[in-house]
């Protein structure tokens, strides 16, 4: 095949990829627009109860109002701060605990049944106890965010530690490296991909923990706005908070994905 024909074929191929991607975007946008317009129309026409389901235009005007009087920022900032702290600390403690288990096989075998029970238990059920123990404040919300993600992180990361190819450890040991150096040079860096992927799971989990924590503590934050809106039957407020949470959680997930692409470029 001559070069010009090959080039032409290649261009056609690139064009077809581009076209497909554009079609996907268009359909995604259509779904988005039709969902919100259907919502708006059915609410206006009374097909759905506007008191319960509100409407996008009402939510938007409430959003503008709350944004202009500044009260929204405080709530968003609180929830976001708690979530970020919860998921960073959850991942950190989980990884530390996994390291401890890796360090001492004895401890790992002793703790095994306890970890299974703790993992199976619904952590949000501990909420009331946390509030009694720590107090109805910031602290118990963070604790909730950590608690919900720490055990699963421990289990996932510990499994990853165990699955590192023994031969890398052998290389370090043949150079006289001790257990600490094996961990630092091999086990931990080899498991960065698993740690990052547990970070991804923890973004979602921490939102659950923090929102439930705010339900219970009921002082401020998006969770508080939801529970307050529910109590005073202001579902516009509830739905607005929900939409903000959806946007925030997505942004955070994207952030972790960006981090992933930066950190583990060379792991294969």
């Amino acid at each position: 095949m001559s070069k010009t024909i090959t080039n032409k074929k290649h261009l056609e191929y690139l064009l077809s990829i581009k076209k497909e991607r554009r079609n996907i975007r268009i359909v995604q946008l259509l779904i988005f627009l039709s969902f919100f317009s259907m919502w708006e129309i059915s609410s206006k026409q009374g097909w759905i109860n506007p008191l319960l389901f509100s409407s996008p235009s009402k939510i938007w005007s409430l959003f503008l109002e709350k944004a202009s009087d500044g009260s929204l920022y405080i709530h968003v900032a609180f929830t976001l701060g708690e979530t970020v702290l919860g998921f960073i600390l959850g991942t950190l403690f989980g990884t530390l605990l996994a390291a401890l288990l890796w360090w001492s096989p004895f401890l790992s075998r002793v703790l095994d049944p306890y970890l299974v029970v703790l993992n199976a238990m619904p952590k949000v059920a501990l909420g009331p106890i946390l509030i009694v123990a720590i107090g109805p404040n910031f602290g118990s919300i963070i604790a909730m965010g950590i608690l919900i993600s720490v055990i699963i992180t421990t289990l996932v990361v510990y499994t990853a530690f165990q699955n590192v190819d023994e031969n890398y450890v052998k290389v370090v040991r043949s150079f006289g490296g001790d257990k600490k150096q094996c961990f630092k040079e091999v086990i931990l860096p080899a498991c960065f991909p698993s740690i990052i992927s547990s970070l991804k799971v923890n973004v979602g989990l921490s939102w659950v923990g923090v929102i439930v924590g705010e339900f219970l503590v009921s002082k401020q934050g998006l969770g508080y706005m939801i529970i307050y809106g529910f109590q005073v039957f202001n579902f516009t407020l509830v739905l607005m908070s929900l939409l903000i949470i959806a946007v925030m959680a997505t942004l955070m997930y994207q952030g972790v994905e960006y981090l992933e692409s930066k950190l583990i470029k060379h792991h294969s």
Binding site: F175, A190, S268
Partner: peptide, 23 residues
């Protein structure tokens, strides 16, 4: 070893100086 077992997350430079670092 049987296979190279170079550390994929280290550059060649860091790989060949690993032993020196550990020793």
């Amino acid at each position: 070893l049987q296979q190279d077992y170079l550390f994929p997350w280290k550059t060649i430079e860091d790989n060949i100086t690993l032993g020196l670092k550990l020793r």
